[in-house]
């Protein structure tokens, strides 16, 4: 059985790590989580981002939600926003694609061009 007391351990461990982090400029992963996104499978996509970040011990990236941005047919939609504000929009996401975005874009800085909204719209 899990107990609240375990949080004390996590607190100690994490406080040390937070002290070691150099810059607080966070990259943000924003998942569209309105009715359209949820129905299209946005929650497993968000879960995958959290899992991959945990697996790779990446803690300068935050994962958050947003509402409907008006292109429901391309959901699940994910935006990766750099600290400087530049943004890449990925469409028709699924957990496998999310894992690749972490490995290539978040870790290595290479945008997964074929998942972007630009690539999707060109194929029409």
């Amino acid at each position: 059985m899990k107990s609240i007391a375990e949080l004390e351990e996590i607190r100690k461990r994490t406080l040390e790590q937070i002290g070691l982090r150099e810059n607080n400029e966070k990259m943000r992963i924003v998942v569209g989580m309105a009715t359209c996104g949820i129905a299209a499978g946005a929650r497993p996509v968000m879960n995958t981002f959290l899992e991959e970040l945990k697996k790779r011990n990446i803690n300068n990236v935050s994962v958050t939600m947003t509402g409907c941005i008006g292109i429901c047919r391309l959901e699940p939609i994910v935006e990766v926003i750099e600290p400087d504000g530049s943004k890449v929009t990925y469409v028709k996401m699924n957990p496998e694609k999310a894992a690749r975005v972490v490995a290539e874009h978040i870790v290595n800085g290479r945008v997964c061009i074929d998942y972007t909204i630009g690539a999707e719209e060109k194929n029409k």
Partner: peptide
């Protein structure tokens, strides 16, 4: 609120904390 009290200065959205909450 109870969790945040226990965490002191550690943000509740730290991934490790989020995982603890999920299992809890």
């Amino acid at each position: 609120t109870e969790i945040k009290e226990k965490l002191g200065g550690v943000p509740i959205n730290e991934i490790e904390v989020v995982y603890w909450i999920r299992e809890f």
